[in-house]
Amino acid sequence: MRNNSLADLHGLVWTSLMAAAIGAGAFLIVPIGPVPVSMQPFFVFLAGFVLGPKRGAMAVGLYILAGTIGLPIFAGGKSGFGHLLGPTGGYLFGFVVSAWLCGKARMESTKIGWSAGLGFGGAALLAVYAIGAAWLKFTLSISWHKAWLLGVVPFIPWDGLKLVAALMCSRYLARFGLLPGQR
């Protein structure tokens, strides 16, 4: 990325837009247990793939900050510090790591290859699941097995599809030169 104020502004706008998209994805949910199926992971993956590791993680951090201070943008229109520390809080923290990992796939080239995208995306999924399931286990005082069954297993196929869709979208944007830092 060029070192000038217009390029910096462009990056900030993209970061803010991705944070807003993650918030919008929280409203597209299917409640199937303590952790709802939402479009948030799609936009988290996309933020990393589109913005890179630093700005992708910043977009998720901005989303979490907005929800924590009271904007009703967490899954199901919830907000506040209490929700952040509730059963789904680990997934929110895992999203920061997930966006960062997806962004690492973009480090060498603007257009992400399938193997790099799926590799880093798979690591991103594992990070979200590990942090989220551990948080779920401790907040609900359940066994590791039950936390895995409640907080990971039902989401694996859906999140896999969201990962592939986010990678496809970022590759499409890169093909037409629409990513931040591209000319």
Rank of each mutant, 00 (worst) to 15 (best):
F43K: 05
A105P: 03
W144G: 13
K54T: 11
I112M: 10
V37W: 00
V13A: 15
L84E: 09
I69S: 10
P41E: 02
L149D: 05
A147S: 14
H10P: 02
Q40M: 08
F81Q: 11
S16M: 15
S141L: 08
L125I: 06
L149T: 13
D159W: 00
V44E: 01
L163Y: 01
I112S: 08
A166K: 03
G76T: 06
A24N: 13
I131M: 10
A99F: 03
G56Q: 04
P72M: 11
P41Y: 00
A21I: 07
C102G: 01
L136I: 07
T110R: 13
A24T: 13
V30K: 05
A165Q: 06
R175C: 11
S141I: 04
A123P: 00
M1F: 14
L62N: 14
F42E: 02
S109T: 15
M18I: 08
V30P: 01
F155S: 02
I32F: 00
L126N: 06
S109W: 10
V50R: 03
A7M: 12
L28Q: 12
A7Y: 14
R183A: 15
G117Y: 09
P157D: 02
Y63H: 13
P34I: 09
I64A: 10
Q182H: 10
S170Q: 14
A26N: 08
A57L: 08
M39C: 08
V96F: 06
A134C: 13
Q182P: 12
F49R: 06
F49V: 03
I69C: 13
S79H: 13
K54D: 09
F42L: 10
P31F: 04
P41W: 00
I112V: 15
N3M: 10
A20Q: 13
G86I: 03
W114H: 12
R2T: 13
G89I: 10
H145I: 11
P36C: 04
A130K: 06
L118I: 11
V35A: 06
A19L: 13
G11R: 14
